[in-house]
């Protein structure tokens, strides 16, 4: 049942790439200020579903949807919805971070500048705050004007998180944010998620069951474009209701 706490609500969401239907009537309620993990085998539609939530899929030719997505009570497919401001509210961090070939500072400042923050003091303040929130400030404060491409993979990933945070989103979508990182950088990202959920609603796609178990409050299991089961993470990993979920998380699938 949908309640007050549900910030994102999808109703019978179908999604098609051309003729191929890849999401089948997804009904999901996502709570505000919680971490929700999406798990499921490759190709089951996690990324597609995630990208629906900030209408990133609008850009793909031949792609279309049916059904509704409500965020904060408003259907994001309504004609009067401004997609740019939707994407500002619903930020996204990708699997492989891709900083611009610019300085660390400019990478983070980019969003706020595009969004009309002009005063250099204001920009500086936002950059410092965002880098701090992304737990990167101490590591880069002396090299803010060096190229972002000189950062390590783990630092680049946190830089991309800082970039997302700089535009003040409400919701952060993370698509396998730690899949290319070593255990130390992974732990930093996970600590960060725990920190960020005090202020943001977070959705994370991960293929790492232990990671889903560690960081999330709720877990949703997708299979072949369907939402098979969604429950409290603790329940999903100790005693899931569906046999397919059990088989998947214990690695006995297929």
């Amino acid at each position: 049942m949908e309640t007050e706490r549900h910030q994102i609500v999808t109703r019978n969401l179908d999604f098609f790439y051309g003729d191929a239907k890849v999401l089948h009537a997804i009904n999901m309620n996502i709570e505000a200020l919680r971490v929700t993990a999406f798990i499921g085998p490759s190709g089951c539609g996690k990324t597609t579903f995630l990208r629906c939530l900030n209408r990133m899929n609008d850009l793909i030719k031949g792609a279309r949807h049916a059904g509704d997505i409500h965020i904060d009570g408003k259907n994001i497919f309504d004609r009067d919805v401004d997609v740019v401001s939707l994407r500002k509210r619903v930020g996204m961090v990708f699997q492989k971070s891709n900083p611009f070939p610019k300085s660390v500072f400019d990478n983070v400042a980019y969003g706020p500048r595009v969004n009309g923050v002009t005063g250099s003091r204001d920009v500086e303040r936002i950059v410092e705050r965002s880098l701090n929130q992304a737990a990167l400030w101490d590591e880069v404060k002396d090299r803010l004007h060096d190229s972002a491409l000189g950062l390590s993979g783990g630092q680049q990933q946190r830089l991309c998180i800082a970039r997302t945070l700089a535009v003040d989103p409400e919701i952060i979508l993370m698509d396998e944010p730690a899949s290319a990182l070593d255990p130390i950088s992974t732990a930093k990202i996970e600590d960060l998620i725990a920190e960020l959920k005090q202020k943001y609603t977070i959705i994370i796609v991960t293929h790492n069951m232990q990671q889903a178990a560690r960081v999330s409050d709720y877990t949703a299991f997708f299979l072949l474009g369907e939402l098979i089961e969604m429950d409290e993470t603790q329940k999903m990993f100790t005693n899931p209701s569906k046999k397919t979920t059990e088989d998947y998380i214990t690695g006995r699938f297929g």
Binding site: M209, Q210, F237, P240, T245
Partner: peptide, 9 residues
């Protein structure tokens, strides 16, 4: 094995 679900229990 970092067990889950039945294996964990």
């Amino acid at each position: 094995l970092q067990p889950m679900a039945f294996d964990l229990r």
